[in-house]
Design a binder for these strands. Structure first.
Lengths: 344, 344
DNA sequence: CGAACGCGTGTGACCGTACACATTTCTGCC
DNA sequence: GGCAGAAATGTGTACGGTCACACGCGTTCG
């Protein structure tokens, strides 16, 4: 009943109030305050209210570092990412951040600068030094798996946007299926000479899309040709297009992502070819801009939000000790627009 | 000289090695280990080596939480962001992350879900509860400033991509200048009836670009007309275009960003109009894809990387107690491509 | 009617590190 | 060789929480 202000009245520094300050103001022990903070069941409503009032009065915030120290739980999830500026990863990360925050976790995001083993290991090492409780890898390079195995991670982790690959830690969009859908679409339209511009060789997704492409072609008994290995950028698509279109020995292209497809269409225009009149094009990802390309791009949509959401769900489940994980791949969806047409 | 393994040999949990374990293995006191970690100058090279060996042997990692607790420095910089999936913010954040990590800081990124005051405050509140040492705001909504002022932030902060606005905490690209350059370019090409499609009203950047546009027009004694307020998306640009092009009472458009410009060009095509033949278009941002639009887009380039880099530089300086800050705005650059031409 | 129990609350110890200060060891010099 | 002073290293304490356990009290039950 004596609401004395627990001000320490020190000279210089204004120390942030701690749990004992709150206790003093509320007239209880610090342990009771702690119980309120961790909403323990057995507290008298009246006491609860007094503590809450004291917290509000002092503007008290629990010190996360102290908490982390004593519980040895950082409440941090690490994200190892490559290409965070790209639409796909960025979208997934956004979903992850939201879901994580709602669950009381914060994110520690690290970008790897190159796909070299050293860079990947440095990134993982950095995250482990943050003592993250779990790890999400959105850097679908092949070498990531080596690095993960080598470092003997002790925390649950999940890799995104990769293929199955036999590891039990992957949460994946069925890229092979997506690529097959895209390729089948072109075949169904009567195309028999189909090119593929792929992503970088060390990207698992690129590999998967290429596999899907090749398998679909071979199932249809069509001639396969060596895919071009690109770097995901529109510029690459453009220059590759200029080169390829000098010999026009194909009537359709399945491009590994929408950006490269955009560049390729640019090259078609410059080469005086019409899309889809002369060349049909399918992309991958369905970035929001794809619907407004010239012409609007037929592409394979991935649900990046769903992926991110499920990643957190999976990890939180594992952190709670649940073992069953839903491993069904997320299904991509072919979006047919105007960049593909029946072969004339 | 007695390299006894400092294994606690406990039954269940394998406790991570701490500074005392290292000390025991190295045969020194824990304080000496601490000195090594904080590279104190006065340590005998031999001792240094012994400690380092012990660290390596045990795979010891300093506990960040304990450090943060005792130093009351979280070594965390908060980022309040909107639209992290967009190219600009994403690029800046990437640069920030890299620079911060190099300086030994980690990032805590929070996305605000809406531009409402409550959402902004919740985001700031969340970041403050992480006890961030500094704050970067990449959510250039007008209300952000209100929220910041209201919450009486005690940490140094900087807002990105906004305009000067009189606050001393802004690091800004001169959006007004960029918009003027874009508009002047159109005027120089002989256009007199120029439209503007702007971003959302509560975005400071949108406002600034609009101001630049209007000022340049009025300086040239040209008729101004009310800008259309968009939402930055390609789809909006498309639908706005379809609407506007029904009355073709303009020959040029300055669009608030590249995505909307893309949508607008789509609308032009559908309306049977040629770009730049019938309509000249200038965008803003210079996203990597802009060079491959149909036609390649004349736009205003912003150096997002530079912005991010300087944000960290500024904050670190302030954290070190330096007061002078380089407040020169980053200058945007007009990139002339093929979406603009002389009025016929 | 006393022991057992549950509820609500308080006490002591500890998490892993950095800082202030104390102490030992080494170095140079008269 | 002894001493000052610097260099190198060690000891106590605090940071702000949580956990295990102890405690007082009222209720229930044998």
């Amino acid at each position: 009943m004596t609401p004395d202000t627990g001000r320490p009245a020190e000279p210089g520094r204004v120390r942030a109030p701690n749990i004992r300050d709150v206790a003093r103001v509320a007239g209880v022990s610090y342990q009771t305050v702690s119980r309120v903070l961790n909403d323990s069941p057995s507290i008298r409503p009246e006491t609860l209210q007094r503590v809450r009032d004291a917290i509000a009065e002092l503007g008290y915030r629990p010190n996360q570092a102290a908490r982390a120290l004593v519980t040895s739980r950082s409440r941090t999830i690490g994200v190892l990412a490559a290409q965070t500026v790209h639409y796909g990863p960025a979208t997934s990360i956004h979903a992850i951040e939201t879901a994580a925050r709602e669950a009381g976790y914060r994110l520690s995001i690290t970008n790897i600068s190159s796909s070299e083993s050293a860079s990947i290991k440095a990134g993982l090492d950095y995250l482990m030094s943050q003592s993250v409780e779990a790890l999400i890898v959105i850097a679908p390079q092949v070498r990531v798996f080596e690095a993960i195995n080598e470092l003997q991670l002790t925390v649950p982790y999940v890799t995104l946007e990769a293929t199955g690959l036999g590891t039990s830690h992957s949460l994946w969009v069925d890229q092979v299926m997506g690529a097959r859908q895209a390729t089948k679409h072109l075949i169904d339209l009567g195309h028999t000479e189909i090119m593929h511009i792929s992503g970088p060789q060390d990207w698992i997704e690129a590999e998967a899309r290429m596999q899907g492409f090749l398998r679909e072609l071979s199932d249809a008994d069509l001639r396969t040709r060596a895919p071009i290995l690109g770097d995901w950028t529109a510029s690459f698509g453009y220059y590759a297009g200029l080169e390829l279109l000098r010999y026009r020995d194909f009537s359709a292209v399945f491009v590994g992502n929408d950006q490269m497809a955009l560049g390729f269409m640019h090259a078609c225009r410059e080469s005086g070819l019409s899309v889809p009149g002369d060349i049909s094009i399918v992309g991958f990802d369905d970035i929001p801009e794809a619907a407004h390309f010239s012409p609007p791009l037929t592409t394979v949509r991935q649900n990046f939000v769903e992926i991110g959401r499920r990643a957190i769900e999976l990890l939180l489940g594992e952190l709670r000790g649940e073992t069953e994980m839903s491993h069904d791949p997320v299904q991509p969806e072919l979006i047919i627009r105007e960049s593909t047409t029946r072969k004339s």
